[in-house]
Design a protein around this nucleic acid. Structure first.
Lengths: 205, 205
DNA sequence: GTCTATATTGGGATAGAC
DNA sequence: GTCTATCCCAATATAGAC
């Protein structure tokens, strides 16, 4: 049972399906398991969503919007680039913390079916702050605040890499870390506290 | 047909299965498709490998060993940390370039079945250079060459993040990049050329 | 709307001829 | 070793009673 009786059936299905799809992926998920998890009969799934494909598409969009928050890439509107970088990691790491299973699921499904991300991008507002950040970065470059040899687009992708990879690589990191006596959970906490500085060190003039 | 007639059947199956599994994952792969791709009959697959599970395990190990090269994390034996960092990215990026589909496949399968990575780690030599790097890093810290507030374990994981993510995120990056007029392939080349410097800037005293 | 029963098909696996 | 034919189960999907 995914939840108390208060939720209506459609909502219970959505929550159950989100769990199962995120864990197993589209190809690995089973309608039976979703039904069990929602505490209902298998045929009710078809009554509400017609087919596995349609159910999946629905769930994919819901889960993705939850995980991304308002925008693909949240950046503050005000502040220096350094402040924006710090704030970005705070928000991004919070989202990841709350959606631990999402990154692997998302990358894998989009890889299997790139059409998904196109549909998704239509529904998520394009980030105006993204372009602002790039413009601002070039200005602060001229002002001598940041290194001249840093490209803001690459910087942004580096930031995302540093933020997400510890979650994407969890199953691998966990195992490899024992060979050097490091605890994965402790690592995550310390990582979160140190990445902003890592990036700022790299670009500061 | 995966290859010319010169290869024996077992080899042709292995190449075909590697392609299909890497593309579709274990759950999404179909024995029929592997057979077609190898230019043989479906039942021959079972003759050679008994079951889909066994075939997959075999392929997983082969593909992983190819992609990792000799070791989980190749680091030079000699040189300063800065030199080792540069060399790491060269080798790592070469491997990734040759195994573009591997990262997503690997992370996803290990996530579905963590047992896989334990079996794999047994077969790959544990990296002695890893511990050497960490020790050396602490020495160069005392010598004032690198910043005191950098933890070498976190540094190594940051390096891997920066190296791999552009490949893991390919399907997403491709789509998002068009919204800011950036070409993914060009990005990859420039990224490769700039990451070592990005990291070195960040830790240099 | 929700259930039980059943249809249908896809796909992994085996039997047996050659 | 390689094929054709077939088995069989799992999983999606539908019919129909209530």
């Amino acid at each position: 049972m995914v939840n108390e009786e208060e939720l209506n059936v459609e909502q219970r299905i959505i929550e159950a399906a989100a769990d199962v799809f995120e864990e197993k992926g589209f190809a690995g998920a089973r309608m039976q398991q979703i039904a069990d998890h929602a505490g209902i009969n298998k045929s009710l799934l078809h009554y509400y969503f017609r087919s596995k494909e349609l159910l999946f598409e629905k769930i994919f969009m819901i889960v993705a919007k939850r995980a991304f928050g308002k925008s693909v890439l949240t950046l503050e509107k005000e502040g220096t680039v350094f402040e924006k970088i710090e704030k970005f990691f705070e928000i991004h790491q919070d989202l990841l913390w709350k959606n631990r299973n999402f990154p692997i699921f998302f990358i894998n499904e989009v890889n299997q079916n790139p059409e998904l991300i196109r549909k998704l991008l239509e529904k998520i507002e394009p980030s105006e702050q993204l372009k602002n950040f790039i413009v601002q970065f070039e200005e602060e470059k001229k002002a001598g605040l940041v290194r001249k040899d840093v490209d803001p687009v690459h910087l942004l992708i580096n930031m995302i890499s540093l933020s997400i990879f510890p979650y994407l690589g969890k199953p691998i990191l966990k195992e490899v870390m024992v060979t050097v006596d490091v605890n994965y959970e402790e690592f995550l906490v310390k990582h979160r506290a140190s990445i902003a500085q890592f990036v700022i060190n790299s670009i500061k003039n």
